[in-house]
Nucleic acid binder design. Sequence first.
DNA 1: AAGGGGTGCAACCGCTGCGGG
DNA 2: TCCCGCAGCGGTTGCACCCCT
Length: 481
Amino acid sequence: MSYTMVTDESDDAMYSSIYNESPSAADNIGSGCTSRGKGSVLKKGPWTSTEDGILIDYVKRHGEGNWNTVQKHTSLARCGKSCRLRWANHLRPNLKKGAFSKEEEQLIVEMHARMGNKWAQMAEHLPGRTDNEIKNYWNTRIKRRQRAGLPLYPPGTHVEDLHWSQQYHPSTSNVTDRRRHQDILQLGNSKANVLFDDLTFANVLFEDLNFATSLLPVASDISDMFSCNMLGTGASSYMSPILPSHSNIRQAFQSPEHFQNAAPQKNPRSCSISDHPMYGNQHRTDVMIQDSHHTFTDGMVPTSKPLFGAVKLELPSFQYSEASGFDQWTTPSTPQSDLLDSVDTYIQSPPPLEIDEPDCFSSCDTGLLDMLLHEAKIKASAKHSFSSTTCITNGTQNVPRGGETHIVTSGAGEIKSSSLIFEAFAVVKTEEMDEVWEPKRADVIRPDVLLESSWQDQQSRFGIVRDSSSLSDALSLLLGG
DNA sequence: AAGGGGTGCAACCGCTGCGGG
DNA sequence: TCCCGCAGCGGTTGCACCCCT
């Protein structure tokens, strides 16, 4: 749908009446445009063609910038911000109108996976497109995919599996990002919230299970199953992830060293989530799904509205510094060393901690494990064609495909996947809220830890040669092997 | 045909960063 | 160093249009 909001001359008069003379006109003066040049009330609302012409003429004569002087030098009763926006989004030359092309759509998806809601930065890589356009597109896309029950990122776009970790990495999330998350959640501190922790982990699990989709054909199904069974929503796996409040994270990780100090360095096995300020002392958080117009449960949640236990679901953003050279990334022929390094590190690294309770699964088994395994067997038996060298970049454009370098062999990926699946069972277990759960492997699925120290470091630090055999066995079970 | 909800675009709002005085 | 104004960004809202019943 495409239509212009420019009104004709008669509308101009109408809007003059509405915005400048109506009793409510003063109410239309937002704090963003408070100046009242020439003693007149600044106009708001849709632009008229006359106003457009005036602005275009002004820019021709004076160039862009100095938007606040537009009102002084012209008859426009618009604030500078409004002028700038109008020019940038509609009037400036070389603007590309119309629907996004497939290439543009894919680029947006991949950029969002990498950048998060950095619309302006995305617009820089889409000539002729504005940040507003991209933002609107993304928001509607989110809703579309949400309605369709699809994951936000199409299969094959796996960078999102990384940026969850990246976003929670204290040293890489910038101040602005952190600030913007301050109002995500207002969680109290009175008592431990096991469910909050559970859902947090569950979210990570879903992400990782989706990640594992390319490695494990059954993983996505498992993920969906999890979302239905664990959360009881019946929605897609992306419907109701719960993330910890960033403000809490900020408190917990005021410095990179903070976690290291607080983390169970001495004896990781003795780590309890409740030991850490990030995970301890959380209120129980229930899942609230809003799905009304302009309310996003996926990717964006209005932060100006009170959230009852709901969390801003801004998708994990694989935030890169501007200096990281995004252009390189957009050029397929250029080595994607940074991204791929992350990918490879993330995927190929085995879980850092062993499952130290041999009876974990039995004690944690709520029946879901059996169901999962059963389901996995069925699916695996139906998918004999599963290759042990599944390319993790299947379907993505910018991550090079194929080639040993970028292919994750079944070993590590499987280990991770199965490990994460098993992680979930501890999570499932704790849905029985009456029990006090003391996770022994909290830092296994804490992305900040995963980033803070490499998997390999974790291994060496904890003196763990990963118990990969058990996990491989588990995977074999999942695959019906 | 009508109306009510959904959809998508345009514009506004609040905030931050930055540069100049 | 501080203050102030401007530019820009991201989130949010308003509203015209679409579509379904």
